[in-house]
Each structure stands twice: as structure tokens, then as C-alpha cells.
Design a protein around this nucleic acid. Structure first.
Lengths: 131, 131
DNA sequence: CCTAAAACCTATTGACACAGTAGGAAATAG
DNA sequence: CTATTTCCTACTGTGTCAATAGGTTTTAGG
């Protein structure tokens, strides 16, 4: 289940794309438009800056802006950054984890196939398609 | 993310299908084969009995068995029973919930589409395909 | 009838993540 | 110099997850 972090973050990205006028957009405006606590958005937006998804500028006239064109972002990369990993099951989430039942597990192939479908959908969906 | 409840429950179903000899299969055997705590499985299996997925018989010679043929179960129905709901986002999980932003939400259509894909996959996958 | 084996039932717990809140420090344009 | 804005650290209540624990009831077979 995608948490508010991922959902809100995605909405911030859409908001930034829709209101892009070349300059930086203050978080307050986004919070007002999206009806989300600005304080909470700060946490999310910080992660997005650190992850290189957007850039921020402090001080008056500051705010946030996209670093790429909307069609260059995929929903998958946005959600992965905020959710940590988009995986249906824990066995696949941690790539280093080596399940002792890996060889005989009857469900693993299905989870892999399922994960592939989810992945394909989210990484083919562009931010620009949501505007 | 599918929790252990759903994953273990699915494995119990597979185990019951694979070891079906007409009589009841004790949980201890399943727990041993699947290498899962029997105590924990009790909780999961109880839910599956209440949900009508399997039936149990107390006493010596008792255990659990499927109520339908493996090809009559879908992975979706099994997971839905154990996970409560298989929904990617909270907005769609509770059918009675009426989001105030429903009309203007730019992300809702995508979540619906995504949910549809997930649903389609899980409800078309039969238990018998996992044996 | 007795006993062993099994399901069934209630309660508890430690750890962790989620969804925020709070208060201030640093940066920057005008 | 000041108002605005990001940036940073810390805290907190709530809930779920993943079990564990200890018992009671049911049932088949000797």
C-alpha cells in the first residue's frame, strides 16, 4: 500500500509541473492548493531534494522547482524514492536478502511476475501523463 | 506490500492442495514443512476457516482441508481475506470513504487504473497454477 | 472410559512505521 | 535590514505487524 508520503509527493510533483513559470514555487502555495499540512510536506520535499528529483532555493523568492521536464519523470522513480522500495513482498524488497526457501518456494515465481507487472506500469507512466 | 499473513496463508493453501489425500491435515505438519511457527499459523488459519476458505476438524485425526478444488481458488480471494483489502492507496481501500478532492484529484484516475491491473492479475491467478 | 492429539480461544508484547507537530536556524532577495 | 523561505533536529501519539503464551474444548482410537 502506497503511503501518504508517496501520494503527497507525487501530488507535489504534479503541482510543480502545473504551476511552473520558470521561477521557484514556495511550499506554502503548494500546501494551500493541495490542502496538505505544509509542515508535513517539508519532510517529504526534503527527501525529494536529497534524491535529486527537485531543487530548492532558500530565502525570499525561493521555493522548489523541477530539475527535468515532466515527461522525463516516471511515477515509479518518484514513488521509489519516497517509499523506499516498491515491492509486493519482503522477499524481493531487499536484494541482498537470501531466503533459505528460495529454491523450493512455490510462491516466489508468482511474486516476481507480479512485481514485474507493477514495475512495468509505474515506470512507464510519466509525470506528464498526470497533468 | 503483502504481509506475512497473506504470504503464509497462501503457502498454507498450497500445502493443503499438495498434500491432499482426502483426510484432514494437521497444522503441525504444515508448520514443519513450511518452516513457520505453528502458533502463528493458528491465527492465520483461523481467519481462513472463518472466511470459508478451508475447514477444520478438532480432535485426533483432525486438521484442515480445502473446501474447493485448487483451480476454484484465486490468489486474489485468498489475499483479500487475509490482508483485509488489496488496494494500492487508502483512497480506494474504503469504498465508503468520500474524499473531498475526489473530483479534482489528478492522481485518482491513475490509482484506479493501477488497482485494476493489480486486481486483474491476482484474481485471474488460480491456486492450482502454483502447484 | 481414558488418553493423546488436534483445533480452538483469549490475551499480551516488543518493535517499528506512519502521520504528523513543534520550534528554531540559516539563507536570500529586495 | 527585514521579510520570506528553505533547512534542520527532535518529539509524539496511534496503530499494525509478527509473534508468543497458556489454556480449553473436541474427537478418534484403544
Amino acid at each position: 500500500m502506497i503511503s501518504t508520503k508517496g501520494r503527497y509527493g507525487l501530488r507535489v510533483m504534479i503541482d510543480l509541473a502545473q504551476n511552473d513559470n520558470g521561477s521557484y514555487i514556495p511550499l506554502k502555495d503548494i500546501a494551500d492548493r493541495q490542502e496538505i499540512s505544509k509542515k508535513y510536506l517539508e519532510i517529504i520535499v526534503k527527501q525529494m531534494v536529497e534524491g535529486g528529483l527537485i531543487k530548492g532555493l532558500s530565502g525570499k523568492g525561493g521555493g522548489y522547482k523541477l530539475v527535468k521536464k515532466p515527461e522525463k519523470y516516471t511515477v515509479g522513480e518518484i514513488l521509489t524514492l519516497l517509499e523506499g522500495t516498491i515491492c509486493s513482498v519482503a522477499c524481493l524488497a531487499d536484494k541482498n536478502y537470501d531466503c533459505p526457501r528460495r529454491k523450493k518456494c512455490e510462491t516466489l515465481p508468482m511474486w516476481k511476475e507480479f512485481d514485474g507487472i507493477v514495475h512495468d506500469y509505474l515506470y512507464s507512466k510519466k509525470l506528464s501523463e498526470l497533468l
